[in-house]
């Protein structure tokens, strides 16, 4: 069950890399967060701790419902071109992601040995998600993708923490959840303002400002 969910997360992560449109990216993120919620729920049933249920619920609320709808609303409001500018075409992005996954598995083997347990899989998947999140931030032109990349990274870290250490302390989770939410809101406001001034949110064009 866990393995199935992890595979789902992995596939969705790769899918994010080949998206060409912003709404598709946001939808992918939503699905990924949903799968993450299911993983957390599964974990909560096994541990039977109330705190983890709360965290799972928060995850559902914030990352599956609130943030994606906020981002969609933002996309509609800003009325930007839906095309996601890519610095690397989808094929090359996928090849890069394969390398990142391989790197993650090597990294994991330093700590856990090469035994293919569930923990090992979770570790690899989470590191991959983090790296892919970074990748999205660096190699995509629009500013929205940077929010999404950050959120994906946060997903990966959450997964890593749950898999290896059994979850971070309760209050840390709450705090991070709120943090992420507020970050997303603020970045959304920034997008709006940037668009107002420059009429685009292509961040690489901000180099025109260089002195």
């Amino acid at each position: 069950m866990t393995l199935f969910l992890l595979t789902g997360i992995m596939i969705l992560t790769y899918a994010m890399l080949v998206c060409q449109r912003v709404p598709a990216l946001i939808q992918n993120f939503r699905l990924q967060s949903l799968f993450l919620f299911l993983v957390t729920l599964d974990f909560a049933f096994r541990q039977k701790e109330a705190g983890i249920f709360v965290v799972a619920g928060l995850l559902l609320l914030v990352k599956v419902v609130l943030i994606p709808s906020f981002l969609n609303h933002l996309v509609k409001k800003i009325r930007v071109d839906e095309r996601l500018g890519l610095f690397l075409n989808p094929l090359l992005s996928l090849i890069a992601a394969l390398f990142l996954t391989w790197g993650a598995s090597v990294f994991c083997s330093w700590f856990l040995g090469t035994s293919p347990t569930a923990v090992f899989a979770a570790f690899v998947v989470s590191i991959t998600v983090v790296l892919v999140g970074f990748f999205i931030m660096v190699f995509r032109m629009k500013a929205l993708t940077q929010i999404v990349g950050l959120l994906v990274m946060e997903n990966g870290i959450f997964l890593l923490a749950s898999a290896i250490t059994g979850g971070m302390p309760f209050f840390v989770e709450i705090a991070i959840a709120f943090d992420v939410f507020v970050c997303a809101i603020i970045t959304g406001i920034f997008m709006y303002r940037i668009n107002k001034v420059f009429t685009h949110i292509e961040v690489h064009r901000l180099t025109d400002l260089k002195g």
Partner: peptide, 12 residues
């Protein structure tokens, strides 16, 4: 560079 992507790449 003035480009966010480069900065992120540096961090990465």
């Amino acid at each position: 560079m003035g480009s966010i992507h480069w900065y992120l790449a540096y961090i990465f």
